[in-house]
Simulated assay, not measured.
Amino acid sequence: MTDRYDDSNLLTLIRAGRVFAPEALDETDILIADGRIAALGRGLDVPDGWPVEVVEARELTAVPAFIDQHVHVTGGGGEGGFATRCPEITAAEIAARGIATVVGILGTDSISRSPADLLAKVRGLRAEGIAAYMYTGAYRVPPPTLTGDVQTDLAWIPEVIGVGEIAISDHRSSQPRQDEIERLVSDARVGAMLAGKRGICHFHLGDGERGLAPLRRLLSETEIPAEQVIPTHVNRNRALLEDAADYAKAFGACVDVTAFDSPGPDDLSGFQAVCDLLKRGVAVERITMSSDCNGSLPDFDAKGRYLGMRVARNTALIEDWQRLVLEEVLPLDRALGLISGNVARVLGLQERKGRLAAGFDADVTLLDDKMRPIRTFAGGQCVYASEA
């Protein structure tokens, strides 16, 4: 029997009302071929008989699809016992928020969940159309790995693009010494260099009094560049956010804001955090936002005893971002960097993601006038279409 393939939709032509790449373009049509953007223009067409799907979206705005660099794709949690393990996320839940690219992560629990589980989930999401990557490691140092070595993971496993989330300034961390942090970051740097990757170290910040001090020492006392290190959850409380603003300006570093789902009494929302960072003089190019979705949001008392837990979702990420645009804190072209272009640069994916341009991955989100995702394309495939 002869193998056959479905050639009915080899090409896709999106006719949008506006295109932000992230800057506003005169072009309104996007031609997609073989998972990449083939051309942008006005009145684009293809010869009769060619296998093309035309998406009429004149009432919508096309933007680079969103990137979430901090997702517990296999579920997080576990701090309150086995019954508090969070569920996995689905490809549909990701795509419905306009997100086409995620980075999977392990957190507190690297015992009942392993890097191998994470890699399997990442590959499963890829099979469903989502561009998925992962960090090797987890909260603890030395970190759990796939091959037994951080450098080897980064050098030989394509999906591994960094190390994380390494916990510091948190009672749940392994309380790593400064020399352990320095060795871990240097291992990530060398392994990534061998594979042509950025190889960031993604650091979880708790609410401990040390704050960003370990990372300040790292950048002050070693030759490690600031782009190698990304602190996240920097809006856990106001003092930490102030520390993060000073850190970003002092080192020309990037900081990642978490769009907390139902922020606690000390947390600042993603919206508030971005506003405060901007007011404190941090350039928007130095700020990213992520969801921490399907991770746990545990509550502890003053002695570190577990009180309860909520499961984070990725809805707050999009809602906080929409608010920044709709309340005119940032214009659309600059706001897109927070969850697209800036993130692509941080992860070392800027040559193929975070921008609508010929040759880039065909990751496109169509937004309505309220900045709500209506359709999401990942690698040229429509992975979400609103029923409304």
Rank of each mutant, 00 (worst) to 15 (best):
Y247D: 05
A245T: 02
L240K: 04
P265C: 00
D299T: 15
G211E: 00
G270Y: 07
S296L: 02
R286M: 08
V282I: 00
A226R: 09
C275H: 06
A283N: 13
T288E: 05
G211C: 05
A253P: 03
M289C: 13
L215K: 04
L240W: 01
A239R: 12
R238N: 10
Q228L: 08
S290F: 03
F251Y: 14
P265G: 00
A226C: 13
T288A: 11
P231W: 03
N294L: 10
A250H: 14
N237H: 14
D256Q: 10
A273L: 07
F271L: 13
Q228C: 10
V274F: 05
R236A: 12
T258Y: 02
G264A: 13
G264W: 06
L218G: 08
E221V: 11
P263E: 10
V229T: 12
A213W: 09
K249A: 13
S269E: 03
R217G: 02
D276G: 00
G211V: 03
S269M: 06
E221S: 11
E242C: 09
F271V: 12
A244G: 04
R286Q: 15
G264L: 13
R236G: 14
A213E: 15
D292F: 07
A213K: 12
P231A: 09
N235D: 09
M289L: 15
R210P: 00
H233T: 08
T232H: 12
C293F: 12
G270C: 13
D299I: 09
L219H: 01
A244C: 08
A248P: 01
E285T: 12
V282S: 04
K279N: 13
K249M: 14
P231V: 06
A213Y: 09
E242A: 15
E242Q: 15
K249N: 15
G211Q: 04
P298I: 02
E223T: 14
V257F: 02
N235S: 11
P231D: 06
T288N: 08
R210W: 04
D246S: 14
A239L: 06
F271D: 14
L240M: 12
P225G: 11
A250G: 07
P214F: 06
Q228Y: 01
S269C: 06
L215E: 01
F300D: 00
L277C: 12
F251D: 05
P225M: 12
D276K: 05
A283F: 05
T222A: 08
V284M: 04
L212M: 07
L212V: 04
D276Q: 10
V255C: 08
G264H: 11
